[in-house]
Structure formats: structure tokens, C-alpha cells
Design a protein around this nucleic acid. Structure first.
Lengths: 131, 131
DNA sequence: AGTCCTTTCAACCATTGAGTTGAAAGGGGA
DNA sequence: TCCCCTTTCAACTCAATGGTTGAAAGGACT
């Protein structure tokens, strides 16, 4: 159900070209020719990719006059984001609980490193910009 | 580069079964038989899915004694999350700028609705639990 | 040793998906 | 009107993927 729409969005981003398209559309709308320009690929192929993105709801294109701009739809990103964040939080809550138990078992002197030490997440590290 | 690793993670989640596996692993580690149980699918098929998840870095499995538990790796989730959030923020910054310009053009009386009205994001709505 | 369960490899089949070529509609603008 | 550019449909090739069956290692337990 929910899973189906979700995995369609994931599938839409499963291709590097489409990933790149989305990244570029985040900078601003673009016509198809503009979008297609960097890729060594037929225009028709780009349209196909576009259709996949559109079917997944990641992108919309007003059917109006000829040069139809392509626009990124943010809701699809939100869909993934809430899903990811939900599961990430579950894992981390569980890990905190686990660490607490371990610490208690050790007479709370120093935490036992069982595998990787459960640090909290980097909280959106400040990467410069590599699209 | 980055894009390649990213789209591999996305590709790993492009399948509903794998999506579900990850969701279930967020609740806790599991052996392969436990993981495979709900699906009408050969055990070998489940192993294949597991390998995809592992190659994408979403999951790790200690090579040790026999019943090897499968563990969710949170860093892969972080990878997607920062990517999504970065692009989402760009779009929203751009939209805010656009709205400002439109409002000014209208003599800042009431904002013009050009398409969908650029509301801010739902900020992780409190869905109960539908995996 | 032998037995049982778990894990993995290999070959095969059917379906999907990315990309191509070719051709056909759709709309401006001279 | 005719021309050009944009958009889309259709059919084809080729590689990748989800699934199967069959068999083989790897450890654990008697």
C-alpha cells in the first residue's frame, strides 16, 4: 500500500541519471532540452526518464504551451524523508536502550563497545557541494 | 561518484520486499529464517535480496557462528537523508524567494497562488504506524 | 563418525528497464 | 500556408533483476 508508492519513488531514484536530474531540478525548473543537454543520450531516452520521475510523483509538468518546464515536486521527497527518519529513529532508540543495559551490566563504569559504539547521527554534516 | 553509491542505496529500496525487510529490521536484528518467514518466497530468494541490501551498505551481517543475525546499518539511511534534505531545502529556499518577488509585484496585498502555493513542509507528520 | 539446519553457489527462466531508431502529432512563427 | 522545434508513440535490442530448482559447503549437536 504505502510501501508501493514509496518503493516507486525509490525506484525512480535508483538510476544515476535520474538522481542527477533531480539534483539539477532542485536548482530550478528546466525545459527538457536543457535537462537533456549534459547527457550523451537520445532526447527520447530523457523523456522516458522524465516519465518515470513523473509517475513516481517526483516531478510535474504543466500541460500547456510548448516549451513545458519540468518542476520538482517536494512532497515526494517528504514521503521518503519521513519514512527514512522514522526507521532511523527506531534503530537509534533501540541502540540507546541496548547501551544502557550493557552499561548497567558492566556496573556502569565504562560502556562496552559492542560492534560500533552507537554514536548519535551526524545531523546533516556540512558537505560543501557535490550534487 | 557520490551519486553512484546513492543510487545503489535507492535501488536497494526500490523493491517492496526489501523495503519491508528494512522496516522490520528497524525493529530489531533478525536471523535470515525469521526474516524470510512472512514472504511466500524461497529462502534463496531472500538471500539474494539480503545480498542487494548488503552491497548497498544498508545491512551488515557478522561472519561468525551459524545463526548470523542481520543488522540494519544506519549510515546508509543517513546518506539518503542528507541528500534528500539538501535538495528539499534548496527548492524551498527558491520558492520563498519566488513568493517574495510575486508579492512585491502585486503591491504586497495578497500573495498570488501560482500553482500550489508553496507551503512549508509538514515536518515529519505524526503517523501512528503503518510500516 | 553421522545428521540436521543454516548459508551459499550455479544454472536457468521470465520480466522489467535503459537505450536505440523511426516516425508521427502539436504548436508557434515566417 | 509551410517550416521548424518540441513532444510523444511504437517497436526493437540488450543487460539487469526477481524468482525458481538443485546441489554443495559450514557448523552444531549426538
Amino acid at each position: 500500500m504505502t510501501t508501493d508508492a514509496l518503493s516507486r519513488v525509490f525506484a525512480a531514484l535508483a538510476d544515476p541519471t535520474r538522481c542527477d536530474m533531480v539534483a539539477r531540478l532542485a536548482e530550478g525548473d528546466a525545459t527538457v532540452s536543457q535537462l537533456a543537454e549534459p547527457y550523451r543520450m537520445t532526447l527520447q531516452a530523457v523523456y522516458k526518464h522524465l516519465r518515470v520521475l513523473e509517475d513516481a510523483g517526483l516531478v510535474s509538468r504543466p500541460r500547456g504551451p510548448q516549451p513545458r518546464p519540468v518542476r520538482l515536486e517536494v512532497q515526494a521527497l517528504d514521503l521518503m524523508d519521513t519514512w527514512i527518519e522514522r526507521h532511523r529513529d527506531r534503530v537509534e532508540r533501540r541502540n540507546r536502550r541496548l547501551d544502557a543495559v550493557l552499561a548497567e551490566m558492566n556496573g556502569d563504569e565504562h560502556e562496552q563497545d559492542h560492534g560500533d559504539g552507537h554514536r548519535s547521527r551526524p545531523e546533516a554534516a556540512g558537505h560543501p557541494d557535490d550534487s
